[in-house]
Amino acid sequence: MDPSVCRDACLVTMLLVLVLAVFLGFEVISKVPSRLHTPLMSGANAISGITLVGAVITVGAAETTFATVLGTLAVIFATINVIGGYTVTDRMLGMFKTKEKKK
């Protein structure tokens, strides 16, 4: 069974979660100095790699070779997204920061 399964009974809850998260997203990001646009974007991009959790579940639940292949590919792509996204964001922010110290 899918470990985080939450079907019909929780459907409304899931939609509620969605709506709240969207509003929260708008609230949290509303004021960003344009200087930080790129790190914010790539940082958010890394978070969208959360699909990795889905990919792990897909592989975990796979009963056929084909499903395993699908899931493993998903794990690879999502991990590139996650690791790459966070690393590159950190690198950029590191550049922003060193100069502050220098100043």
């Binding site: 939450c6 979660v17 929260l24 969208s48 959360i50 579940i57 897909t58």
Partner: peptide, 12 residues
């Protein structure tokens, strides 16, 4: 896949 963390993070 009925997974809340994907829903929240994706929406954010």
């Amino acid at each position: 896949i009925g997974n809340n963390i994907l829903i929240v993070s994706g929406a954010l």
